[in-house]
Simulated scan of single mutants.
Amino acid sequence: MTLPTLDILGIGNAIVDVLAPTDDAFLAARSLAKGGMQLIDTAQAEALYAAMPSGVESSGGSAANTCAVAAALGAKVGFLGKVATDQLGDVFAHDIKATGVHFPTERLAGGAPTARCLILVTPDGQRTMNTFLGACVTFSERDVDAAEVARAKVVYLEGYLFDPPAAQAAFRAAAQAAHAAGRKVAITLSDPFCVGRHREAFRAFVAEEADILFANEAEILALYETDDFEKAAAMAAADVEIAALTRSEKGSIILSGGKRHAVAAQPAQVVDTTGAGDAYAAGFLAAWAKGLPLAEAGRWGSVAAAEVISHYGARPLADLKELVA
């Protein structure tokens, strides 16, 4: 068996994030559910983008954020995701490569434009996401390069990408390529609404293909259709080798091999919760790839999440290597 040359290969929606500060009145005027994520079409995306205050644009998408944060922690990282041959596609490709992430996916020519997520951040730090998926939903089995998958210790799959049927086939292909190469498969559930739309498919994938599961409290309750966290946690632990379950200010619980590790949340001044779960997964996987104990991997995840929520944007501003040390 060949040795891996990457620690993590992320697969997910390649999206350009546009973050802007706003207020509750702006959300109310547009009937936007605060703290939620909704999918929007081209016309809605253009109207909202025009109405938003000026913001910060960067390569985004949940798994792409995880990859960038993991790279900042010193992990060797690659990312597969679909952008178009347009200006925002250029922004995404340049930005993700600048973080040190390998990005080999072929671009979409002559189809939908590059995806963007318009993120409105209110003074309480809540983010309301409005996502136009564009080119990224065309990601399919053809875009899963088995050789790239085999290079990584773990392939990390983003639940948001689970929506289109082509992507579900891509996830299965990636998992099979990973396991054929003796690698691990990690998945994050991403969003309770996402889970609700595809619960049976998610449950089957988690039980049959996943080795490592990331979920927050709302997502894990949605997956196992219960309002009892301990029951859901036990069900997750029965399905996967490692379940890393985050609970905001209550920290996280890591379950593996009949053992339970409780990890405290790191103190943080909450400015913007965008990317907290993505950063946690990045810290966890970067530490796991180094062979560190699970409790320490959880601590790395908590440190990364705390840094990311202390400012606008889903990418770290401080030196994460220094923080985890």
Rank of each mutant, 00 (worst) to 15 (best):
L48P: 00
T105K: 10
E307F: 06
G111A: 06
A68T: 05
V83H: 05
S302F: 07
G36P: 07
A268W: 10
A233W: 13
A325W: 00
Y160K: 14
L3R: 15
A177S: 13
T42F: 11
A150N: 09
N65V: 02
L223M: 09
Y224M: 02
A210K: 06
E230V: 03
G257T: 00
G277N: 09
R299D: 08
A166T: 13
S310V: 04
A84S: 14
D23T: 14
G275R: 04
G12Y: 06
A243Q: 08
K76Q: 14
D211L: 04
A150S: 12
P267C: 06
G277H: 09
V69A: 03
A305H: 01
E322C: 01
S54I: 06
V121K: 06
E307W: 08
S140T: 14
L189I: 07
V324R: 01
L108G: 01
A28T: 05
A50F: 03
F103H: 07
A325C: 01
A135H: 11
R260P: 06
S58N: 15
R127Y: 09
E158G: 10
A175H: 11
A279W: 05
I96F: 02
A47I: 14
I253M: 10
A295S: 14
A232M: 08
K184M: 15
A169I: 10
V101C: 02
Q168N: 04
L73F: 03
A314R: 00
C136H: 11
W300Q: 04
V91T: 15
V18C: 10
V154H: 08
K250T: 00
A70S: 05
V83D: 09
K231S: 11
G110M: 11
V101A: 01
G55I: 10
D191R: 14
A28F: 07
D211V: 01
L120K: 07
T66H: 09
G301M: 04
V101G: 00
A204E: 15
P21S: 15
R197K: 15
S62Y: 11
N216V: 04
L118S: 05
E46Y: 08
S256T: 01
V149Y: 08
L292A: 13
A169G: 02
F103L: 04
R247Q: 13
A265S: 15
A238F: 12
A281Y: 10
E296L: 10
E225T: 12
G182Q: 11
A166K: 14
P164R: 14
D227L: 01
L292P: 10
E296K: 13
A170Q: 08
I11S: 06
A175I: 07
D23P: 00
G277A: 09
H261I: 01
F205G: 08
S256I: 00
A169D: 12
H261A: 08
G159I: 15
T131N: 07
T138F: 12
A29W: 11
F132C: 03
D227G: 02
V101N: 02
A238M: 12
M52T: 10
S252I: 02
S62Q: 08
Y156I: 00
A236I: 02
V144Q: 12
V16E: 12
H179N: 11
A215I: 01
D228M: 08
A232W: 13
L221W: 03
K153V: 11
A14N: 10
